[in-house]
Design a protein around this nucleic acid. Structure first.
Lengths: 205, 205
DNA sequence: TGTACATCAGTGAACGCGCGTTCACTGATGTAC
DNA sequence: TGTACATCAGTGAACGCGCGTTCACTGATGTAC
């Protein structure tokens, strides 16, 4: 026996819409989904979303928030299992970053895609994207003190390590690794890359 | 005295449209310019472009071609001035890459933006993007033989070096360097990054 | 050198679709008494 | 505990704009004779 009123009130439409948008972005491979499709996928009329989001960019913004917090969660989770101060901790963060970006190319496109360059409010996106970076900073700081690297280089080193992971993620997503190095996988590339880099640091210390 | 017929036939509309598209993408900061605006900017009616491009994606494709060939030209030009086999040659390529991407964020968005991930014909884009990479490969190969690094690592090393430059470019474009390291500039970051990496290679050799 | 004609790059108006957003409404929910 | 009413999350129809693309056309160009 089905319920008499099949949920006229949805209950959690806001989150359902965010999820629907994520799925659509994922399927289409780009961020320009149609509002009406997100509504339909959430089982709701085309006007309903406007009870929860002022307009489409507000929904997009919520999706971005979701993406960044997911990335932050992933990186934070990985750090629980790693000894602080080790190269492995740094590598694990990079791997988590790459894994997240390659498994969620729809988020990669959102966070780093063309639209992101200008459209998104800078202040807000700053705060969001920082969570993961501060975890990396912490790991690098501990590694530096264990390896007698000058304290003042921590920030710079973190940026460089972030760049390495970010660059590998992007190049993977565009198929360049598969194309030029079909037998390799990104994670071991990141691992050896990072080891080489840290080794260079110790030598030049 | 103005000419009686102010150029009913444009002469070089095809290229004018490509240039107009480039300008529009640059100004809007994203790749979704309007066909009619490109036409107007080229001083021509909205239907005229269709004499030269089957549809909008054909124009986009021509713009992409232009972008990739410009990147290739820039990298090739830089190599003329660098001693083959030196670390400086590798660094110069990376700098040219970053300079191109940061000075032409509109191209960055096109080549690496969200739309690029799926939309563009893979075969074609492969050929295009390869030019610069093969120049890098060559530089790395010479450096390796001068530094007694195993020949079979050349491809892998090139990918890693490309990733470093690409990552720094992306992170710069999104303002993260200005934000976390306001006193630094990308080019010196690339330089020290690359030196550290190559030093690590020599040590682990 | 001049003329006829094919060719082709343009025009301008209009079509049609996708899609964001609004509006007047209706059904469900929760609360005061 | 039951009833009246405010509140608010939904509906469905429609509007309107942006924009890619087409169509019948016209003006310029180049070439054969």
């Amino acid at each position: 026996m089905r319920p008499k009123h099949p949920a006229y009130h949805h209950g959690d439409l806001r989150n359902a819409l965010i999820l629907a948008a994520v799925e659509l972005i994922e399927e289409r491979g780009s961020a320009d989904f149609a509002m009406i499709d997100a509504a339909r996928r959430a089982g709701v009329s085309s006007a309903a979303p406007y009870r929860h989001f002022r307009d489409k960019t507000a929904l997009m913004d919520a999706v971005l928030d979701f993406a960044f917090s997911e990335l932050g969660r992933n990186i934070a989770a990985v750090m629980q299992t790693q000894p602080l101060g080790s190269a492995e901790a740094i590598i694990a963060i990079g791997k988590a970053y790459i894994r997240f970006m390659t498994q969620h190319r729809e988020f990669y496109a959102l966070m780093w895609g063309a639209t992101g360059i200008r459209a998104v409010d800078q202040e807000v996106s700053d705060e969001r994207s920082a969570v993961g970076f501060f975890i990396l900073l912490d790991a690098v700081e501990h590694w530096c003190s264990e390896n007698e690297i000058a304290e003042q280089d921590v920030l710079q080193l973190s940026i460089k390590l972030w760049s390495m992971a970010h660059g590998l993620a992007g190049i993977t997503l565009y198929g360049h690794i598969e194309r030029f190095l079909p037998q390799a996988d990104v994670f071991s590339l990141l691992e050896s890359s990072t080891h080489t880099f840290l080794e260079g640091l110790r030598k030049l210390r």
